[in-house]
């Protein structure tokens, strides 16, 4: 008895024609907000990558005559307290933000994610021990921990990324563990074991693909937070050393001129705000989308 599944589905997708195909690729119902946010993130990423070749001024060149000039005067986005071009500093600062965000999140994701998956899969003593350690890390005042780490490993871009990444391990471990726990309950994991699949194979084939997407989506939200953490460090003078521009550093500098030239703090603040907002928005939309879809319709 041959059934007509395939016919059914074919008919359905044919009836929808091109739009169905487009939906397969671009997804359905992301809405314009998603694409605006994603576009902004693309702009930031491109700025970071091509900062050196973009037609912007030298971010470190102080032009005294331009000091504190507002936007749309001598400089498109104005100049800072030393007369350096804000746009150029934003573009180069993006590089720091992007590098720190990517590195920190990758470190957190790889280490935390792995630990979380293992904890969720094996449960037992390992899970309990790991969770206890993570709770201790979480309970520790993160700023103090961060200060200690930076003091210990130095103030280079990499050091700061690693330090922030370390802080993110518990959060990722929790997200990965929670997702793993729900995946492991699914019968397909049981079916794989019944077929004789080994632990590694189950982890890689059945668990990981179903855990990685929600974790990645969470990573985008986390990147926004990393950017904020960097700016907090900059406020304390503990981020990447001056004169290298960072968004946090720029805001922190700008606070001296708040009374006279608001734009010095405002322009990097708005940039950072938009970036963090976009990361959160895109991350959230992706996350709700990747929550394991159970059936069609």
């Amino acid at each position: 008895m041959r059934t007509k599944v395939s016919d059914q589905s074919v008919v359905r997708s044919r009836a929808q024609g091109f739009s169905a195909a487009a939906r397969q690729v671009f997804g359905r119902g992301f809405g314009p907000g998603f694409w605006i946010a994603a576009g902004w993130l693309l702009v930031v990423a491109l700025s970071a990558i091509f900062a050196d070749v973009l037609p912007v001024r030298d971010p470190l060149d102080p032009v005294i005559s331009n000091r504190l000039n507002g936007p749309l005067t001598t400089n498109i986005l104005g100049a800072d307290g030393l007369g350096r071009d804000m746009l150029s500093r934003l573009v180069h600062g993006a590089r720091v933000s992007v590098v720190i965000a990517l590195t920190a999140v990758t470190i957190g994701m790889v280490i935390g994610g792995t630990l979380g998956i293992l904890a969720g899969y094996f449960r037992g003593h390992f899970e309990r021990g790991l969770m206890a350690v993570l709770d201790v890390i979480l309970a520790f005042p993160w700023l103090v921990l961060l200060l200690a780490l930076v003091a210990f490993i130095g103030q280079s871009l990499m050091a700061i990324s690693v330090a922030i990444g370390f802080l993110w391990i518990p959060a990722y471990a929790r997200v990965a563990r929670a997702n793993t726990l729900s995946v492991v309950q699914r019968e397909y994991v049981l079916a794989a074991r019944a077929m004789g699949a080994g632990t590694l194979r189950i982890l890689l084939r059945e668990v990981l693909p179903n855990v990685i997407l929600p974790v990645l989506a969470y990573g985008l939200v986390a990147m926004g937070l990393v950017i904020i953490v960097e700016s907090a460090l900059a406020f304390l003078g503990l981020s990447v050393e001056a004169p290298q521009p960072t968004w946090g550093g720029m805001i922190s500098e700008g606070k001296r001129h708040l009374a006279t030239a608001v734009h010095v703090a405002l322009v990097p603040s708005i940039t950072m705000f938009l970036t963090v907002l976009s990361l959160n928005y895109v991350g959230d939309r992706l996350r709700s989308r990747f929550d394991v879809r159970e059936s069609n319709l």
Partner: peptide, 12 residues
């Protein structure tokens, strides 16, 4: 005596 196939989708 199974009924072959599935109920229609009611789309259009």
């Amino acid at each position: 005596q199974a009924i072959p196939g599935r109920p229609p989708q009611l789309i259009n």
